[in-house]
Design a protein around this nucleic acid. Structure first.
Lengths: 353, 353
DNA sequence: CTGTTAGCGCGTTCAT
DNA sequence: ATGAACGCGCTAACAG
């Protein structure tokens, strides 16, 4: 492998000092035209590339933005998170900032070393390693107040929290808006005449179910009705949220109770639900409508006539997260914002009751 | 934002020199136990985090591996490339190396600056910016010999080429094996009795069609038969490879010619083909079998009874690419390898002819 | 055992 | 218009 040609090599070759090279290549007006031309030519000839690491190191910046994820690497082929990341990547690229990935170690075995074990515990520590100017943080669960306090006080790099449900003081945040999007869904379904609305949650104990239920409860109360807790189905602990057997059992029970529409946690769950309903001999959406959140994956678009989506622009969300990172770098006052969710404009996939 | 506490701050506070701090924290045996403990305690108290940028800068390494892509950022939510990237990310993470993304600028407008324009032209130049120890390169088309020559001679960082079809001397390579996988497909289909095999290609002029056709030609000749060029359908230039109208026309034509199975370029194309065949009143796989390559996306798994896949472990491929990067760093001799493609073991989705 | 010095590659002074 | 010197944070070599 070829050794890097440094500014010193170039200076030696050109018979000048490194300072002159630096000035010549950064278009400093105080350098003789003739010298500059000679240097530029020589730089091309020797294929000199300034070492950005060194340059940025001196400046105390890295022009790297971290993306921290506590989820496994399937975020790279997941329609939801992948699109979010895609947005971040685009914004960063246009800004000539590199996107660097950090994954938590919580799934890896500890080797017993205390320092390492501690790092594995919080994971976020790694973001303070000096290799990034700040990070966009995708937590699995809400950040604890203890963690928040620590990073507010000690972190030399700003953190943008995404996918949090609570507002954590002192951080830029882009929440996924589980509560919000369920409200949008409920309003939409009410407008289509649905009164008995079912839902399939995610694994028990998580924020998704909590926030969703809160939205259901609030909305039904506001309309002078009571939400039946039996209509909110939570897959057994440890089960895949798209497990066919669980889904079939839940859907059958909902149907028996006269539920007319089921809200699924993600598009995949929705697609499976539709398949199961059809196998049960039910017509979708006439006998049961199915609704979910996000953007349809390309493969799922075949389901478009039956699956209705409460939509959001995830790539725009990613861009927004990057903007927050930039704002935080500039020292601006933290802002919390939710993804914007919109009701469908094409009503063909949700029955009118 | 808090200022970083540096090794100097720590040294001042502890009443020792930076050298001692460095040794104490890197478990150098030549430091008194008492001193080390004092320093470790103080480091925790002040939340000192060694600046990895500085540390690695001195060592002349970055512990960053680049992933260069000439494809848009949908690689982040694409089932094929996303899984490949996922494998790279896992391997890098386990090795405590960060994954940094580089995207080509070929889709962005030039601002007229000559240097920038040149960079936008090749794109790969950016990989020599000193921020990474090497890179995994996902090109859209094969690397030109001119480019190859340049990087062989001038690049201070090793490049691992993926998705290339040609073997380029002097580089570690993981080819996607378009030729190979088609051979596997053809052998499998012959073993199931198929003699008239159709295929849908990608946009005209690309390597995919070229390599596929070569495989078809070779295989048929070897078996004393002639492959009918009419059986290889190429979508019109500029059309989406899953365009319904084009697919319908192609499939109808294939059926008329007595073709019994169609090989699709990717799983999405395959899924659409199945839908179209069904709409045309044909039974899949009895009247026409559909086969494709890769790993089924989760959403596509609903098609399992009808869509047959020539399989490969893409995450393993990503890991392999990372191994190649490591080997290249160690100065090992370049190796070219193809993804390993396997015929299905469950034959229910391909009819016996 | 610990302090001192030098230097990684670069940009930015301050001189000349 | 250019050279010389310094420093970013850290580690390694050399002293003591």
């Amino acid at each position: 492998m070829k050794k890097r040609t440094t500014i010193v090599d170039l200076a030696r070759e050109a018979g000048v000092t490194p300072g002159t090279i630096s000035r010549a290549l950064s278009n400093d007006p105080r350098v003789k035209q003739e010298t500059r031309e000679k240097i530029v030519l020589l730089a091309q000839k020797l294929h000199y590339q300034p070492n950005l690491s060194a340059r940025l190191f001196k400046k105390g910046r890295t022009r790297n933005v971290g993306f921290y994820s506590e989820l496994p690497t399937w975020v790279f082929y997941n329609n939801y998170f992948g699109r979010l990341i895609s947005g971040v990547a685009q914004a960063a690229h246009e800004d000539d900032v590199k996107l660097v990935f950090y994954f938590s170690n919580i799934f890896l075995p500890s080797d017993g070393d205390v320092v390492k074990a501690k790092r594995e515990l919080t994971g976020l520590d790694a973001l303070m390693d000096g290799r990034i100017d700040g990070a966009i943080v995708l937590k699995d669960e809400d950040i604890t107040e203890e963690e928040a306090e620590f990073f507010r006080a000690k972190s030399p790099v700003p953190l943008v929290l995404i996918n949090n449900t609570l507002e954590t003081q002192g951080f830029f945040q882009l929440t996924s808006g589980i509560y919000d999007r369920n409200l949008v869904a409920l309003e939409y379904l009410f407008s289509r005449g649905h009164k008995k609305i079912g839902a399939i949650g995610l694994s028990a104990g998580g924020v998704y179910n909590r926030c969703s239920l809160e939205a259901f409860d609030t909305f039904y109360k506001k309309n002078g009705m009571v939400f039946n807790l039996e209509w909110f189905k939570v897959p057994p602990v440890g089960h895949d949220v798209s497990n066919s057997d669980d889904l079939a059992k839940s859907l059958l029970d909902l149907k028996k109770q006269g539920v007319t529409v089921v809200i699924c946690a993600d598009d995949l769950q929705g697609i499976f639900a539709i398949e199961i309903l059809k196998k049960m001999g039910l017509r979708v959406p006439q006998d049961m409508s199915v609704l979910s959140f996000g953007q349809l994956a390309r493969e799922s678009s075949l389901q478009a006539p039956t699956l209705s989506m409460i939509e959001t622009d995830l790539e725009a969300g990613g861009r927004k997260a990057y903007e927050f990172f930039k704002a935080a770098l500039e020292g601006e006052k933290p802002v919390a914002q939710s993804l914007v969710w919109k009701a469908p404009t094409d009503h063909s996939s949700v029955a009118k009751v």
